[in-house]
Design a protein around this nucleic acid. Structure first.
Length: 917
RNA sequence: GGGCCUAUAGCUCAGUUGGCUAGAGCGCACGCCUGAUAAGCGUGAGGUCGUUAGUUCAAUUCUAACUAGGCCCA
């Protein structure tokens, strides 16, 4: 029985725990970062460095963060951290969007009826408190993900100076002539006499009249009619469930690509869409024959006679015309419907709305003046019947919008609203031109936002709400002229800076007028103040004004915006428009979008589906690093999937990386880089080979950071750890590390590689795995070392020898063949571990033969076998199980033994032992 | 219904301007090791490249339609 030689080996040794215990360790590291002021230290270290301007899009201050937030903010954090390691100064100032309807609704829900009794200031205070509460909650949730930034000083759209900036920006838009007041249909409750937002609408079953109405073609234009109609006096038939809107009818919409048919009955000719003809005939009981067909586009701008007023109704084309119900000829009243309104704008129609806030027709409306709209339904139907315009009248039950407060049915009613004109000063065209100058990542983002800006209607800015920044305009009571006095606006903005946007509601805003101000138009002295507030999209849309350019570290324009792809319609869009108005330039140079988070099956995450994974549960179960690793694994430009299964996969990948790091640290035990580092040119060739491979990895990873292609980094780092290091290099050098003399050149050479790789690799992964990088950094350099997060990325650091790389790539191929042969032998039960084998390689190819001959001495090490013989011949690889005794120290089966004390050891071990004593 | 986008092994990704038997890692299966041990190593099985048509000598790659999914409109 030979003695135990374990003590004579240099086995890996470290306190770096194998078990990450992220759920408890991460919060400790975060606390440490805060305590030592890590972010301040980094900013200090980059004091004179070039600034990378990055602007945070503000999440809405409502509710807990969800996975989408986590994805977004972790991506941003990887950007921030990687740019810092590229040597830039990056000031990340997080923001929150604080105003708006969802918070108002939440406050109303929270406080119940009590809220209705509150005056506007008390109500706004409740809203403010609510937003603050959720900012605090979200801030903690974000910090838990390891996000680096100025969390003590975020920007908040409800901050007084921010509110003042919103007002100032709006005033600029107004004074530059972009802002006008126009009509727009909104959901309206005639009982509460108020506009309702979509979120306040409840859909319930409702019984409505259903009528088919004929609109005769204008006979005077017969020449322009489709051929099929020319011989007849034809009528287009519309279908509606709101007969009371017929007095406001100004148009009939057709689908340009639908086929329409002329149906001849015994006394008239009706036009309906071919696809809906059958339903039409069945519903109305009309019978007739098809006399001809034509496309909807032939009806563009033809005129029809209104069934009971002496006026025309124009034919227009619209994509929204459906072939699922109705007749394919859609009654259009621009004052009473969203789509009707859009079409009305497009065709230059009046936004006619002869209905007041109580739901009564205005007094001067012929035939129905003063009547309630719902009660007027039957009278309209009767009138249609009298005019022989009614084909059929019945009742339908369908889902219809109701007021969530009083539960009464709503109507669509045009109301006066403030708009930003897309045409004023060529805003639309200039914006489109600006889009071309921005780099969109991925590239299709350009098409998406371009199409939206190209086709969007004017921006409706006003909301009949309380929690927001008021539209600070006054109109003359006498002549209606809007006050454009600079001094007045300055006073308003100044007051807001001091006391917040609420000042507008405190007293009569006329008080902000200069003394003795009179209307320049009529000399009037009495003014009325607007009570509406601004769309919250305007708030966040001017963040570039309120946040950028006020601090040298956060300049305007921003280098980068990074948000979900829904923001092409949202923040990117509104920011662009306001910036074009205010500065005639986009506020960003490049824009990155990421996709949405879906479940493991690629389905949307929803409470009702039970597939929601809250970030807090991920950090609780796995830790932020695992979530961050997931973010870096997926190609975020497309939608991304997350499931517990996927997290598990990432937890294992994390363990692989962590164990590799741990092993490197463990084997560097006792290694003093100052004294022990072997210069590259004196290293063993295999060690240099690994260094070359790692050397190639560095620029690849740094470039991927620069390109924001994080999933490439994930793959490259993980593969380097598993393939190059763990299964190849580390496995091979075990013998050298453990069994060679502690300070032998063989061992120090390998340790030098481990050291270089570890230090540089930690920096490369620090943006993705900041906690782990920091933890390992501490084991290398001690707890008080300069933080890894203020380091810079490594650069390629050795001159590669391509011949070495080529030779070793080839040797690795041979190694694979040898492994297959060993496995076969193992399956046969001839050997267990590979050290029990001798390998005989026979090759014919001259080049390969000389290569193997050249390396014959170290091949046992490379293949992790005891002996290797290289022959010229045809048999590729023969595995010979070795029966002989193994060296009790290194477990190799040597060709010959050497006496060392009481035992026989292999020559190498004998020498090492002899030097020990 | 419209605009934009996506679809390659169970999962996450590669696949240069169309051209060898479509790759990797993970997972899985089987095995080895017990001196990285709640670790490490080896081997292997998995793909009609969403479907269908078209262009071409040749299509995962180009075109169209369809299907499924996502975002934004309506």
């Amino acid at each position: 029985m030979s003695k135990d030689y374990k003590d004579s080996l240099c086995l890996p040794k470290t306190q770096f725990p194998m078990k990450a215990n992220l759920t408890t360790r991460e919060p400790q590291i975060i606390e440490k970062w805060e305590k030592e002021g890590l972010y301040g230290k980094i900013m200090e270290a980059r004091k004179d460095a070039p600034v990378f301007a990055f602007h945070d899009g503000p999440p809405y201050a409502n509710g807990h963060i969800h996975l989408g937030h986590a994805l977004n903010k972790i991506l941003k954090d990887i950007v921030v951290r990687s740019r810092i390691l590229m040597g830039n100064k990056v000031y990340y100032r997080p923001g929150w969007d604080c105003h708006g309807l969802p918070i108002e609704l939440a406050v109303e829900k929270e406080h119940g009826k009590k809220v209705h009794g509150l005056d506007i200031h008390e109500f706004r205070n409740f809203c403010k408190g609510y937003a603050e509460k959720y900012i605090d909650i979200q801030r903690e949730e974000f910090k838990r993900l390891g996000l680096l930034g100025d969390w003590e000083n975020p920007y908040r759209t409800m901050e007084f100076d921010y509110e003042a900036e919103i007002a100032r920006s709006f005033i600029e838009c107004f004074l530059k002539g972009y802002v006008y007041k126009g009509l727009k249909p909104v959901q309206w409750c005639i009982r509460c006499q108020t506009a309702l937002a979509e979120a306040e609408v409840e859909y319930e079953d409702h019984a409505s009249p259903s009528v088919y109405v004929a609109f005769p073609f204008e006979v005077e234009e017969r020449a322009k009619w489709p051929e099929a109609l020319k011989g007849f006096d034809a009528s287009a038939v519309i279908w509606t469930t709101t007969p009371w809107t017929l007095p406001a009818n100004l148009a009939i919409a057709f689908h340009p690509d639908f086929t329409y048919v002329a149906i001849k009955t015994k006394d008239r000719v009706y036009v309906v869409a071919e696809e809906l003809m059958e339903i039409f005939l069945r519903e109305t009981g009309v019978s007739g024959t098809v006399e001809g067909k034509f496309k909807g586009k032939e009806l563009d701008r033809l005129y029809f006679r209104h069934p009971f007023y002496d006026r025309k109704s124009v034919g227009l084309l619209a994509q929204y015309v459906t072939s699922e119900q109705g007749t394919g000829c859609v009654h259009t009243a621009p004052g009473h419907g969203q789509e009707d309104f859009i079409s009305g704008l497009k065709y230059g129609l009046e936004i006619l709305c002869p209905v007041d806030g109580k739901g009564n027709f205005v007094e001067d409306l012929p035939l129905f003046g003063g009547q309630n709209v719902f009660e007027a339904n039957q009278k309209v139907i009767q009138l249609l019947k009298d005019k022989h315009a009614l084909l059929k009248s019945s009742t339908v039950h369908h889902s219809y919008p109701h007021c969530w407060r009083c539960k009464n049915p709503l109507i669509f009613r045009a109301t006066k609203q403030w708009f930003i004109s897309l045409e004023h000063d060529n805003l639309r065209r200039r914006s489109l031109e600006a889009i071309e100058k921005v780099q969109w990542i991925p590239a299709w983002g350009r098409n998406r936002i371009y199409g939206m800006i190209e086709n969007r209607p004017d921006w409706c800015l006003s909301r009949q709400r309380k929690w927001g920044v008021p539209i600070t305009l006054l109109s003359c009571d006498k002549c209606g002229e809007w006050v454009k006095d600079r001094k007045f606006f300055d006073n308003v903005v100044k007051a807001m800076e001091e006391r917040g946007a609420g000042v507008w509601f405190e007293a009569d805003p006329s008080g902000f007028l200069p003394e003795n101000f009179a209307c320049p138009k009529c000399g009037g002295k009495k003014f009325n103040a607007e009570q509406d507030i601004l769309d919250v999209w305007f708030d966040s849309g001017v963040s570039h004004k309120a946040v950028l350019g006020k601090n040298p570290d956060l300049p305007w324009p921003s280098e980068l915006y990074l948000e979900g792809s829904d923001q092409h319609r949202g923040w990117f869009h509104t920011s662009l428009l306001t910036s074009m108005i205010l500065d005639d330039k986009a506020p960003y140079k490049s824009v990155i979008t990421h996709g949405f988070t879906l479940d493991g099956q690629g389905r949307k995450m929803a409470k009702s589906m039970g597939n929601v994974i809250p970030p807090s549960e991920v950090t609780k179960k796995y830790g932020a690093e695992v979530l961050r690793l997931w973010v870096s694994m997926v190609d975020y430009r497309d939608d991304v999937r997350l499931s517990w299964d996927l997290l598990n996969q990432n937890a294992e990948a994390y363990m692989k990386i962590r164990n590799t790091i741990r092993y490197l640290i463990g084997n560097l035990n006792g290694f003093d880089p100052e004294k022990d580092k072997v210069p590259v040119e004196k290293m063993l060739e295999m060690d240099r080979y690994i260094l070359y491979l790692f050397n190639r990895l560095i620029p690849k990873v740094v470039k991927a950071y620069d390109d924001y292609a994080f999933h490439i980094i994930n793959r490259e780092l993980l593969q380097f750890c598993t393939v190059t290091l763990s299964s190849f290099y580390l496995d091979i050098i075990k013998d050298r590390l453990y069994c060679s003399g502690e300070k032998s050149v063989e061992r120090l050479s390998a340790q030098s590689v481990l050291y270089l790789v570890l230090v540089k690799m930690l920096k490369l992964m620090a943006p993705i795995l900041p906690f782990t990088a920091e933890e390992a950094w501490g084991y290398l350099y001690g707890e008080n070392a300069a933080p890894i997060h203020a380091e810079v990325f490594p650069e390629a650091f050795v001159e590669e020898d391509p011949a070495v790389i080529e030779r070793w790539d080839k040797l690795r191929e041979v190694r694979e063949t040898v492994n297959k042969a060993l496995e076969t032998s193992r399956q046969k039960g001839e050997i267990g571990k590979s050290l029990e084998a001798k390998v005989v390689i026979s090759v014919k190819d001259g080049g390969a033969l000389s290569l193997l001959k050249q390396y014959e001495k170290i091949l046992p090490e490379v293949f992790i076998v005891s002996q290797v013989e290289v022959l010229e011949g045809e048999d590729p690889v023969v595995v010979v199980p070795l029966e002989g005794a193994k060296c009790p120290r290194c477990w190799n089966v040597p060709v010959g033994f050497v006496k060392a004390g009481e035992d026989e050891l292999c020559p190498r071990c004998a020498e090492v032992i002899s030097k020990l004593s």
